[in-house]
Design a protein around this nucleic acid. Structure first.
Lengths: 185, 185
DNA sequence: TTAAACATGTAAGCTGTTACATGATTTA
DNA sequence: TAAATCATGTAACAGCTTACATGTTTAA
């Protein structure tokens, strides 16, 4: 599948950047649907260079420090555009460690369950607030042919996903609290 | 992390089963949050056996065929219960190939985008209908200390997630159609 | 001057997929 | 009797994480 390859080509198709810059992108909007460590990024860039999908120019920053500014080649752009058009079948649902715990939660007493659920809710809410703050930068939907259109719809999707996660956690907390009250009675 | 280890221990803690049975579980409810191929399952079971977290009895099915019925040991159960209590920090958002495509979709013309979005919507809707049909088996929320409680909340969470995905796709389709109309005018 | 951020890479090991490999039992 | 399902395994490879390794530049 080599999705990382296309995530990198997609970024370089916007404008040239270094491996380090690409790593930073995986901490902003991109982090809402893909991520990679620098070790993997540098390895992939080397591979893409061998395949002639990217080139680089060495720039000197300060006196000594060499920076590699990577750019996409025509061959790389062709490959990217072809991949973007692919209408692939949806795969298995993404893995989720917290749901594994909840699936087997009947072996946890109600206090422990509520504790885990509340902790999860706090963390997921914090993430949602960060997303909402980013969304304030968009007073309206960006033009459909601008880079920002992709940024915007992914951000909106991330907020919707986040809301649905929190709503589910609330439901689960409700069930557990109700069970706890029934136990007392 | 070894999540597969705990997914398997959790299943065996419900009742003994073969590697093949475990593989089948990953195609039902479990598939909503974890999955694994039989090659990985058999390898993991061997490892768990070495670690004395599971045991097995060989049963003969028919005349010759040997089936290994795996059971969890006390040591395995202890390990599982300890893991279930862990309140870990949420990780990076799950990877999503379709959102990679949409992030870079400004390099796709509007017809292609709408085509991809509609295809995605069709597939995600189909998945939701399957989940909704399964949910009909639950006339009410199961008791909090039964296996079925875990099954139920995961199913409910999967339906909510699915609804939110479809709502997002609809929004995206709407944006693209609006842009298309504006282009014509 | 020192801490944070910039910048690039390799090696070992774990996780997961695809392909190879074999054979028995059940149902139509 | 043929096809579907049951049943168990190994090998090669791809994807990803953690740790190792090094050094520069910028801003406080």
């Amino acid at each position: 599948m080599r999705v990382l390859k296309y995530a990198i080509l997609g970024l370089l198709n916007r404008h040239p950047m270094t491996g380090y810059d690409i790593g930073k992108e995986f901490n902003y909007e991109l982090a809402e649907f893909w991520h990679a460590k620098h070790s993997q990024i540098y390895t992939e860039l080397k591979k893409l260079h061998k395949e002639e999908l990217v080139t680089f120019d060495i720039e000197i920053s300060g006196d000594i420090l060499e920076k590699k500014q990577y750019s996409i080649t025509d061959k790389g752009r062709e490959d990217l555009i072809y991949w973007l058009h692919k209408d692939e079948l949806i795969g298995k649902t993404a893995k989720d460690v917290f749901r594994v715990r909840m699936y087997f939660c009947n072996f946890l007493d109600l206090d422990a369950r509520i504790g885990l659920l509340e902790s999860q809710k706090m963390q997921q809410t914090k993430r949602m607030n960060t997303l909402m703050k980013t969304a304030e930068q968009y007073p309206e939907v960006p033009l459909a042919d601008s880079d920002r259109f992709g940024d915007y719809i992914i951000l909106e999707g991330a907020i919707m996903r986040q809301k649905s996660i929190i709503a589910w956690l609330d439901k689960c907390i409700g069930y557990c609290q109700k069970a706890q009250e029934e136990k007392k009675a």
